[in-house]
Write a protein that binds this DNA or RNA. Structure first.
Length: 235
DNA sequence: CGAATTTGACCTGCGC
DNA sequence: GCGCAGGTCAAATTCG
């Protein structure tokens, strides 16, 4: 009996932690969304000015030739925030692609080292990413993607098996899938285009809150159901 | 033993 | 022109 109480308390604690995590993610995403909107507005204004003055392609900046070569997206590079264990130093994100690390640097503005990866799924794939821990919260990893993959995603992206990921990771992954589904993400749509369309949606924050809340409640119900089943079978 | 990672050196752009 | 910072290379090392 005590064991059951203990188990339930642990479950409750885990759900609370997950809720805190999700609240934090929501906060980060909301801030990010606001910042991106502001940046998009700024960029649009800047582009109009530069294309009028110089007559070059709006996205072409000769002074940043090499940098654009390394991360050749004229668009804003895609940034992804991932919650991990604070003591986890691996900087590994399971995003469905296979990455090979080719460098690491300590940057001026962040004591945590920044790792550089390039895609190793295809021989000449130009896709790259930078991964660094968040300055203010070591349990958050920030991944910045650059370049585009010249091949498809691996067979089972975002489909963790219980043998490779623990329950918590599986739940988080499932949550992401549910939230993306709530936003109408379709697999044949390019992820960057999908994200851009979300950012420009004026109801983004409202819909995100609803989707996350719905998923949390769904997960809690599933868990409660599981616990009840276990109790019944044991008694 | 081959593949992946680590790490110091090197290259390039930018600001002063 | 010089120094700094970010990004990449490649030899050495580690791992499976």
């Amino acid at each position: 009996m005590d064991e059951k109480v203990e188990t339930l308390e642990l479950e409750l604690q885990q759900v609370r932690e997950e809720n805190n995590t999700l609240r934090f993610m929501l906060e980060v995403m909301s801030k990010k969304c606001t910042n991106l909107k502001q940046e998009i507005n700024k960029e649009e204004n800047k582009e109009i000015i530069s294309s009028n003055q110089i007559g070059l392609s709006p996205n072409f900046d000769t002074s940043k030739r090499a940098r654009l070569e390394y991360f050749p997206t004229a668009k804003k590079p895609l940034q992804v925030f991932v919650k991990t264990h604070p003591n986890d130093e691996s900087l590994i994100i399971k995003d469905g692609y296979q990455w090979r690390k080719y460098g690491q640097k300590v940057t001026k503005d962040n004591a945590s080292p920044r790792a550089y990866f390039r895609c190793s799924m295809a021989p000449n794939c130009p896709a790259k990413k930078k991964v660094q821990k968040c300055l203010h919260d070591k349990s958050i990893i920030v991944a910045t993607y650059g370049g585009e993959h010249n091949h498809g995603v691996s067979n089972e992206p975002f489909k963790p098996s219980s043998s490779t990921l623990n329950d918590r990771e599986a739940i988080n992954t499932r949550l992401c899938e549910d939230v993306m589904q709530s936003f109408g993400y379709e697999k044949n749509v390019k992820f960057e285009e999908y994200v851009n369309s979300l950012i420009q949606d004026p109801n983004f924050t409202t819909v995100l809150v609803k989707a996350v809340a719905k998923t949390i409640i769904g997960q809690q119900h599933k868990r409660q159901g599981l616990n009840l089943n276990l109790n019944l079978s044991e008694e």
